[in-house]
Amino acid sequence: MNVLLYLARTLFWFAMLSFAASAKEAEQSFPIKEIAPGIFAHEGAIALTSQANEGAIANIGFIVGDDAVAVIDTGGSVREGREFAAAIRRVTNKPIRYVINTHVHPDHLFGNAAFDSPDVTFVGHANLPRALAARGAFYLSSFRRMLGDELIQEVRIIPPTLTVADETTLDLGNRQLVLKAWPPAHTDCDLTVLDNKTGTLFSGDLVFLHHVPIVDGSVLGFLRLADALAAIPARQVVPGHGPLAADWPQALEAERTYLAGLVKDLRGMIKAGEGLGTAAKEAGQSERAKWQLFDDYNPRNATAGFAELEWE
């Protein structure tokens, strides 16, 4: 009897401990940070997408109103999306009404399927459906190599049904989010989300910190947008990549310096009659020490920027 009781107690405590441990593990494996009252974000790794990181390389977040929740980007795999959804449920039981995709890149929206439900409205820039049509099938094929079969096979391309051509306000209940669609910059479908209540801006990849900026829309558009972005009345920003959260608008400065330097180098090379291959190797190199993943993306930015600036 005593032995049985002892065993039962031991088993009970063991079960309780392992339950607590796994809950803690879940929290730690997908940490979220409350950066302002009712605003939470997960900081992505500054890395390339891989099977090991499950594509969790972008910053993603959610905002809780009195009535409902808005999710801002869903991560780089459905597995990440599910972990994120579980993290949201640890914070609130309010319904997720909106999933906002800040742009077309897979690290921000490959988790969409984890949130797909008749009660959820997917929201994006007016150009996002077209961009997904042009790139979706290619991304499913090219990301197989990076994510592996298991992670890629459950990814579904879910285009937005609520699109933003200029500006839209979403009401989560005593909490208004201002969604703004921008002209081509990081991509041709960049959308920002501003929480008026706390002055928190989710910039998507219009702001990079530490992670070298990526130009997949227009280098001049990106550079010129910095002024318009700086005018947004925010207090802090959740950048698309980099630490949570940063002071606004100071967070724009490093990126602006990088883009301005790249444009200056490229213009000089075009004027001198250099070729595209040379520009890819040499333009923008003076910023190399300031950024992570520089060699992965700067040659690409130089390539795209060169082809764009040739038309000036």
Binding site: A134, D188, I214, D296
Partner: peptide, 16 residues
Amino acid sequence: KAAGGCSAPAGKNLDE
């Protein structure tokens, strides 16, 4: 070798 990451063979600025 193919480009990595979010690079795609589609256009960047279709309207332009």
